[in-house]
Nucleic acid binder design. Structure first.
Length: 400
DNA sequence: CCTCCACCGGAACTTACGGAGT
DNA sequence: ACTCCGTAAGTTCCGGTGGAGG
């Protein structure tokens, strides 16, 4: 009699002695200590501490590349501050908004309302109505509110600026009955320059810069977390410095380093290995990228998938195609699967979107007599893209 | 130096849809 | 029931534009 497969898996994972607490390595975990960010913590803390005295803290602008601890520091300081405010009976709250997820004025306001405990539907109300409700709530409670706008540069252009402007002068409308301060976080330095002067000066009353971590600092961070996350002795010699080195190569991204370490641990656990090895980290790197690509491609709208399928049909990795070529094969593909094609203008936007997602690379070039176009190349793993596309029954039959 | 290709990319507008308030 | 709202995807219209070839 064959042994029960599932039983085997259960036992293997349950017996694995790798992770003591895996969640500590997750990107949204806010640790007790943030090594190498003491100065930023002190500065942000001293700015926001005004709230304890009942006055509005200055607005703050935070910049630094991804994974340099901006969000973690902001969250950490605000968490500690609200505890302290609670002890002192100061009327302080904060709202955290991720503008990548909530990239319209409506959703930003909805998130703020949500953090205040107001229930708002995710559609149906007008933006102005949500704004009004927030104002009314703040007035009734005489609160000092700090709004964190993480990844502000993702707010829609144009109308978004309007939102920022309104938020910065919310205090006028509150008439001193409540006060609002804003923390803007971004990794795009150019964004700040592109802001209207009045918004820029108001938002940037204080500025905080987060430099990238170097490899040694990343090691400190990893070591600190690994101590809690793993059982003692499961990390093979050099694993941490290897993760740190890989992440340091990518502009010192701590999130990346933590991801590598976590996934390496998960792989080790699956293999019921007793140790996490450098080899596991190497596999982790591949797996992370593959998962990312598959996830992104899977959740793409139909025509974006068809454009990708056209790229596959045009050839593998090294082939470059122009917008025109891609559009033509895309059209042929549409006919083959019986879908109405969209305009070239739309496909042009789709190409940009795919580029932004890092699935393809597209750069505009001018070829003189032969016009101006974009040269497009598949950037992600061909396998991963193919597999994810294959899951869509509508286009699977037309895949090469 | 000018032309003119093969597109780029901004802006305003549609359509279809799910949902709220009254 | 009726009107208003936001979002996502797409369309229509159209003014650019870098540089090879004349």
């Amino acid at each position: 009699m064959e042994r029960d497969v599932l039983e085997e898996v259960f036992e293997r994972i349950a017996e694995a002695r790798i992770f003591r607490n895996r969640d500590i390595l997750r990107p949204d975990y806010v640790p007790e200590t943030l090594p190498h960010r003491e100065e930023q913590i002190r500065r942000l803390g001293s700015i926001l501490a005004q709230a304890l005295k009942g006055t509005k803290p200055n607005n703050v602008f935070i910049y630094g590349l991804t994974g340099t601890g901006k969000t973690a520091v902001a969250r950490y300081v605000l968490k500690r501050l609200s505890v302290k405010a609670g002890e002192l009976g100061a009327p302080f709250t904060y709202a955290y908004v991720n503008c990548r997820q909530s990239d319209t004025a409506y959703r930003v306001l909805a998130d703020i309302a949500e953090s205040l405990g107001l229930r708002v539907p995710f559609t149906g109300l007008s933006t102005a109505e949500v704004y009004r409700r927030i104002i009314r709530f703040l007035k009734s409670r005489r609160i000092i509110l700090t709004i964190v706008l993480d990844e502000v540069d993702f707010i829609e252009k144009g109308r978004g600026e309007n939102l920022l402007y309104r938020l910065t002068r919310m205090n006028g409308e509150l008439g001193g009955e409540a006060q609002v301060s804003i923390i803007g976080i971004t990794n795009d330095v150019k964004f700040v320059e592109s802001l209207e002067p009045r918004v820029k000066s108001s938002l940037g009353e204080e500025e905080l810069v987060f430099p990238p971590y170097n490899a040694l600092q990343l090691e400190d961070i990893l070591r600190e977390r690994a101590r809690e996350a793993f059982y003692p002795g499961v990390l093979e010699e050099g694993v941490i410095s290897y993760c740190a080195a890989l992440a340091a190569r990518e502009h010192g991204d701590a999130r990346r380093a933590l991801d590598l370490l976590r996934v390496a641990g998960e792989i080790a656990e699956r293999e019921s290995s007793e140790k996490v090895t450098i080899n596991h980290v190497k596999h982790a790197r591949i797996e992370i990228e593959r998962d990312r690509v598959e996830e992104v491609v899977r959740s793409l709208p139909l025509h974006a998938k068809l454009v990708l399928a056209a790229m596959l049909r045009l050839g593998g990795h090294r082939t470059v195609a122009t917008t025109g070529e891609v559009y033509n094969t895309y059209k042929a593909l549409c006919r083959a699967v019986g879908v109405e094609e969209v305009t070239q203008r739309r496909v042009s936007d789709i190409i940009n979107e795919l580029d932004m997602l890092g699935i393809i690379q597209a750069r505009v070039v001018s070829r003189g007599r032969y016009g101006k176009t974009r040269l497009i190349r598949l950037d992600a793993s061909l396998d991963a893209v193919r597999r994810a596309l294959g899951e869509d029954y509508r286009i699977a039959p037309a895949l090469p």
